[in-house]
């Protein structure tokens, strides 16, 4: 028996395991068998960077336009507007990645709450550096044009209705890291 023929079954086993793992990665975790089905593959998927879920546009986009602004409130009661983009506090650009970031952190699922808090803390720090004094609190306002129903759009060709979505207010501490 050659070396290659001895190794071949092992390689075959690995390849079949890989296909099974990426297939299971696409099955729901919920349900009667979900968790136990995923369990044998979790470490493999995480270890090789194979976690996946292809849920792009599984429902329609909700917005026609997005913009955002960071409002800082200072201890003297004054407020000042800043661009929400770190590190330069620049204006909101039209970039898909940033739409994703703001939508995920403005309407946070539990897994994104920590990200929203980090973002708030870092905004405090950047604004303190820019303004020369630490703000009392920072609030990010998402200015979103929510898409109207098709039947309404047909009547007047107006695509969206302006909404102000307030992200959680961050209390800034003196010398915020």
């Amino acid at each position: 028996m050659s070396a290659s023929s001895r190794v071949r079954p092992l390689v075959l086993g690995c390849l079949v395991f890989h296909l099974a793992a990426i297939t299971v990665a696409n099955l729901p975790v919920d349900g009667a068998v979900g968790k136990s089905l995923h369990a044998p593959f979790n470490h493999y998927l995480a270890g090789l960077g194979l976690w996946q879920r292809w849920n792009m546009f599984t429902t329609v986009p909700y917005f026609h336009h997005l913009d955002a602004v960071a409002n800082a409130r200072f201890t003297d009661g004054k407020t000042q507007h800043f661009g929400p983009l770190l590190p330069e506090l620049s204006a909101y650009p039209d970039a898909n990645r940033l739409h994703g970031f703001f939508l995920r952190t403005a309407f946070p699922k539990p897994q994104y709450e920590a990200y929203a808090k980090t973002y708030g803390r870092r905004l405090c720090r950047a604004i303190a550096e820019r303004a020369g004094r630490s703000p009392e609190s920072v609030e990010v306002i998402i200015l979103a044009d929510r898409l109207r129903r098709l039947a309404e759009v047909r009547k007047d060709n107006v695509l969206g209705k302006r909404e102000r979505v307030r992200m959680a207010v961050t209390r800034c501490e003196e010398g915020t890291p």
């Binding site: 292809w54 429902t59 329609v60 917005f63 898409l147």
Partner: peptide, 25 residues
């Protein structure tokens, strides 16, 4: 997987998904 996830959605089922997409950001 993407078809499996899209197919139950009301907008994909009603045939309106592309119309909403064309109005979106």
């Amino acid at each position: 997987s993407t078809v499996w996830l899209k197919a139950p959605d009301i907008f994909w089922r009603s045939g309106e998904a592309v119309a909403y997409f064309s109005m979106s950001m």
